[in-house]
């Protein structure tokens, strides 16, 4: 894949945008013209070369700028990366998983040379070279979780498995859909998802937990989730809500196509070998409405989904006040034609 890493911002002047190629590979999350919660899990297997599902960890044109944004968030608030003491081993597991996957899938960008416990990691796009001893925290500038996730797009949550439940006990969370790692760390699977409306009553989390507890080494799984955000802001955290909340008011009928973004999370789940923990990478992809409607099928379908979404969900996802403007904009791209099943462009 031939990619030029973009130099762009996810704050202040918001210069983020997607190239034409990147729009085509966007993980559009709706396989039909309506949306309701489901445990939409599938094996995280490679499909469609060039798509975001091709590799275990997708690296795209936003990589370098996203990592720069993450570093800024961590400078302002180091509590966005935390690990309870018993989760260090899971951090090493994650570092190993990401380094071996990236070196295999993107050998022109990432190199990993291993001689027993002596490891040598080279990250060309970020100009990082590091020799360290696997398992020895004192040989890295950060803990293993923080070290590797400062170099990997997406949020990461490490879940310990005990008492037939999953416990959120470590994470790197800077591109989240309005939840706080600092507040939620230590919670079990149900407590952590407590604020989500409707889904508990539907038994969604019971079924999801049962599925996740049984994920085994070598058989990762994935699902897509989504919300909407005013401006291409990665860090929609509760910590900074008092700074970004008012940006929702800036959305007008004129600028909605440029300002409103569909925010899709590619959530994947891997069993980690040495700790028997699970890692839950949550990769955020942003697309402007005006970029999205360049794919006719997506324009038609997204209009129908947003128009018909239950009120509780539009409220929970935080765009209830802007929904009329979004629907009005999208309606211009819905000519009423049928759409084919599945998420891919026609």
């Amino acid at each position: 894949m031939n990619i030029t890493f973009k130099d762009e911002t996810f704050r202040d002047d918001y210069t983020f945008s997607n190239s034409e190629e990147q729009i085509k590979r966007f993980p559009f999350p709706f396989h039909e013209d309506s949306y309701m919660y489901s445990v939409n899990m599938e094996p995280h297997a490679a499909v469609r070369p060039g798509s975001v599902f091709e590799n275990d960890f997708d690296v795209d044109e936003h990589y370098v700028s996203e990592m720069r944004d993450r570093a800024k968030v961590l400078d302002e608030d180091p509590l966005r990366c935390q690990s309870l003491p018993h989760m260090t081993l899971a951090g090493w597991d994650l570092l190993e998983l990401i380094m071996t996957s990236k070196a295999k899938d993107y050998p022109h960008w990432f190199e990993l040379h291993r001689d027993g416990k002596n490891w040598h990691w080279i990250n060309h796009p970020l100009n990082i070279e590091q020799k360290f001893i696997f398992g020895d925290e004192t040989t890295l500038p950060y803990g293993p979780l923080e070290y590797i996730t400062r170099q990997t797009q997406g949020d990461f949550v490490l879940l310990d498995q005990r008492e037939e439940n999953l416990w959120l006990e470590a994470g790197m969370v800077t591109t989240q859909a309005d939840w706080s790692l600092d507040f939620d760390i230590g919670m079990n699977f149900f407590e952590w998802h407590a604020p989500v409306p409707l889904a508990h009553e539907m038994g969604i989390f019971q079924r999801a937990l049962k599925f996740l507890l049984n994920i085994q080494q070598g058989t990762p799984a994935r699902r897509l989730n989504w919300t909407m955000t005013a401006n291409p802001l990665l860090d929609t955290s509760p910590e900074n809500y008092h700074k970004w909340g008012k940006q929702k008011l800036e959305v007008t009928r004129e600028n909605v196509g440029n300002k409103m973004h569909l925010r899709v999370e590619l959530q994947t789940f891997f069993r980690l070998p040495r700790s028997n923990a699970l890692v839950f990478p949550i990769r955020c992809y942003l697309i402007k409405l005006e970029e999205l409607v360049t794919i006719p099928k997506w324009g038609r379908r997204f209009h129908r989904v947003i128009r018909d979404l239950p009120e509780e969900l539009a409220t929970y996802k935080g765009f209830i006040d802007n929904r009329p403007k979004i629907v009005e904009y999208l309606s211009k791209y819905d000519d009423g034609q049928d759409t084919s099943l599945g998420i891919w462009p026609e």
Binding site: M187, P238, Y241, H242, G245, K248, L249, D321
Partner: peptide
């Protein structure tokens, strides 16, 4: 009503963030 056992506290969020 969201509660953290680790912090032993409920969560307070700015009420007028959007307005």
């Amino acid at each position: 009503d969201h509660y953290s056992r680790r912090i032993a506290a409920f969560q307070g969020v700015r009420v007028d963030a959007e307005d």
